[in-house]
């Protein structure tokens, strides 16, 4: 029986707050290589998009971004929403205003229109200051 875990008064136990046992953050993260690979692929995709070496179709940049997405899914290495918003779900272009996408608001939604025609809607009229769980500073710890 793990009395140390459930009993907040036990010696050497962690603190309990609102029914949640608080534990210290880990010092290291497993499978860091996957994150490093995704980071490198994203930067390659961005560089290829901005340099314009591969024409208007951005074939190489899209390939890198798609690889990044695949690595993320296969290895369950997650990305923050701020990062995912910069990649088109349909054609995997890196979304840069004026270069590969158009930004507009329409009936209370922010629309990111990719060059491929895919539209992503973000409702902003109901609760403008809304930030999702992963976007709130108190829930994120830098390593």
């Amino acid at each position: 029986m793990s009395y140390n875990i459930t009993n907040p008064m036990a010696k050497g136990s962690n603190r309990v707050e609102n029914g949640v046992l608080l534990t210290p953050p880990p010092r290291n993260v497993g499978n860091k290589e996957h994150y490093q690979r995704m980071n490198y692929l994203y930067q390659l995709a961005m560089w290829n998009t901005m340099s314009g070496n591969d024409g208007g179709e951005q074939a190489l940049a899209r390939l890198y971004a798609k690889n990044m997405d695949l690595v993320s899914k296969r290895t369950r290495a997650e990305m923050l929403p701020q990062l995912k918003r910069t990649i088109c779900k349909k054609c995997h272009r890196v979304l840069v205003p004026k270069k590969t996408m158009r930004v507009q608001t329409d009936s209370g939604s922010l629309q990111l229109v990719c060059s491929c025609g895919a539209v992503r809607n973000f409702p902003i009229h109901l609760n403008g200051g809304y930030r999702c769980y992963a976007e709130r500073d108190e829930n994120l710890i830098s390593m």
């Binding site: 875990i5 459930t6 009993n7 907040p8 309990v16 609102n18 029914g19 949640v20 046992l21 608080l22 534990t23 953050p25 880990p26 993260v29 860091k32 994150y35 995704m38 980071n39 994203y42 930067q43 961005m46 993320s72 290495a77 997650e78 990305m79 923050l80 701020q82 990062l83 910069t86 992963a134 994120l140 710890i141 390593m143």
Partner: peptide, 22 residues
């Protein structure tokens, strides 16, 4: 009373942030 006893434990998930947008 329920809140004094742990029902859940805190966990940490690694996530990748955008390298460019700090």
């Amino acid at each position: 009373l329920d809140k004094q006893y742990a029902q859940r434990r805190q966990t940490y998930r690694a996530v990748l942030d955008n390298p460019f947008t700090n």
